[in-house]
């Protein structure tokens, strides 16, 4: 379950970064800028994914340890993502979509 929570955390920030114009351009330099509606959808999906991740941490580890682990890993994930945006933004798209695919397959197998 923790791998699922970590993946949801990464996807959450990946999709939130897609909702920021500057990072959208970095991620998809060939594409036309997404409309405001799509940016809002990305943001909603991102925050939902983060909430899902936090709730999985709390369910798995309890409220205290769950929150500490969630925020600890959040720092690491966002830092790595920030370094990727600075030096290798092209890496983020395949990793992000592979994570989404993993999340879908994992959910289907466990429902």
């Amino acid at each position: 379950m923790m791998i699922f929570a970590n993946t949801a955390l990464f996807i959450g920030f990946f999709v939130i970064s897609m909702s920021i114009k500057r990072h959208f351009k970095q991620l998809f330099p060939q594409r036309k800028m997404a409309s405001l509606k799509w940016l809002l959808i990305f943001r909603t999906i991102g925050y939902t994914s983060l909430l899902l991740s936090a709730s999985l941490y709390i369910t798995g580890l309890g409220i205290g340890l769950g929150l500490v682990s969630f925020f600890g890993l959040l720092t690491l994930v966002t830092f790595m993502q920030s370094l990727c945006f600075s030096y290798k933004p092209q890496w983020l798209v395949p990793i992000g979509f592979a994570s989404i695919l993993y999340l879908i397959i994992y959910s289907c197998l466990n429902i």
């Binding site: 920030f13 920021i20 500057r22 966002t78 993502q81 920030s82 370094l83 945006f85 600075s86």
Partner: peptide, 10 residues
């Protein structure tokens, strides 16, 4: 704070 969340321009 949110717009600059991932921003590091080396």
């Amino acid at each position: 704070i949110f717009k600059d969340f991932f921003t590091f321009r080396p």
